[in-house]
């Protein structure tokens, strides 16, 4: 590719994507709690108020249900709102507006209505934020037909997917890992750079086992891959990038090559993203598999505050390495 690149952070990718789309389309506006004057609690939207003014960059009251509803209503009637929900845990308060209203509007109206709403929110544990500020609830909205879901792991993916989502005519959700806002990476230097939903990305090529990983777990998987490489195990890391729509083709092609698969996501292990992916692989790649599909996720416990406990609950590279080893030998995992 000849497009020049720049290195920016995951947080800067958010700001650039919003600013570029707001310049491009005057129906795009942005609202959330402390997002304007303060630039967001994670400081990733600093500067937007200065450039676009109070009409298009709005500080809201602490009223998640209200602002989500206002986002849905504005989207229905000609605007393209971006609504920030500061911590993904707080999305619970806005759930009716997303699940029962936004997601179903197009279908229920026989295609008359559309809801071009972008929701940005955060996931991820690891800073002793305890049980109500650390969850990774991406499975919830991935379960809902009518909502599109992106879960970017790099600045480039975040920027490209966020821009796509703002241009999309459907309700979309971007799950940003709050621990990754400082993560740096190259991003194409092009105002029209976007990434389509439903296209997975191979973050590392390998031949012995496929690690399907989301968000921060992509980086954990890459570290595990380095460790396994030293043992002579060649790991391919596949990042689906969007959970809905989901690019199964890329995952199946990888498993066809490697014959083994492990799925990792930071959310609670039960009834979530890993369960869905593992079952689809087991079903659609059955003929290629030499071992059962394994999955790694957070323990099924509320995220504990104590620095003595929290790390126990989150998947790490050691756990991934052990799981992969177990596919080759009889290692207890």
């Amino acid at each position: 590719m000849s497009t020049p690149e720049r290195v920016i952070t995951y947080g800067e990718a958010v700001r650039e994507a919003i600013a570029e789309e707001m310049r491009r389309d005057e129906t795009v506006f942005f609202m959330g709690e402390d997002v304007a004057a303060a630039g967001g609690v994670f400081k990733v939207t600093v500067g937007l108020l200065d450039e676009f003014g109070e009409e298009r960059v709005r500080d809201t009251p602490i009223s998640e249900a209200g602002i989500m509803g206002a986002g849905v209503g504005a989207a229905l009637t000609g605007m393209r709102p971006i609504v920030e929900i500061m911590f993904g845990d707080f999305i619970t308060i806005a759930m009716d507006q997303i699940v029962n209203q936004a997601a179903k509007m197009c279908y229920m109206t026989g295609g008359q209505a559309s809801v071009p709403l972008t929701i940005r929110t955060t996931i991820g544990a690891g800073r002793s934020s305890a049980a109500q500020h650390s969850q990774s609830l991406q499975a919830w909205l991935s379960h809902i037909p009518g909502v599109k879901v992106a879960i970017p792991s790099t600045p480039a993916d975040l920027k490209g997917l966020l821009k796509t989502s703002i241009r999309d005519d459907n309700p979309t959700v971007i799950y940003e890992d709050k621990m990754m806002y400082g993560l740096k990476g190259p991003v194409p230097d092009d105002d029209d750079y976007t990434i389509p939903f439903g296209v997975a990305d191979i973050k590392r090529e390998g031949s012995d086992v496929t690690l399907v990983a989301t968000s921060s777990m992509v980086h954990t998987a890459l570290k595990a891959a380095d460790m396994l490489d030293k043992e002579g195990v060649s790991v391919e890391v596949v990042d689906p990038r969007t959970l809905s729509p989901l690019d199964m083709d890329t995952i199946i092609r990888s498993v066809e090559k490697t014959s083994r698969a492990v799925v990792v996501d930071e959310a609670y292990r039960s009834y979530g993203v890993t369960g869905e992916l593992a079952s689809r692989i087991a079903d659609e790649a059955f003929d290629y598999l030499d071992a059962p599909v394994k999955r790694v996720g957070a323990m099924d416990v509320p995220v504990p505050f104590s620095p003595g406990l929290e790390p126990e609950t989150i998947p790490d590279e050691a756990k991934l390495v052990r799981t992969v080893q177990g596919l080759f030998h009889d290692v207890a995992v």
């Binding site: 002793s128 305890a130 620095p307 406990l309």
Partner: peptide, 12 residues
């Protein structure tokens, strides 16, 4: 986050 805390360190 210590074990003698009110919530045995789980709440903070």
């Amino acid at each position: 986050g210590k074990v003698d805390g009110y919530n045995r360190g789980k709440g903070g």
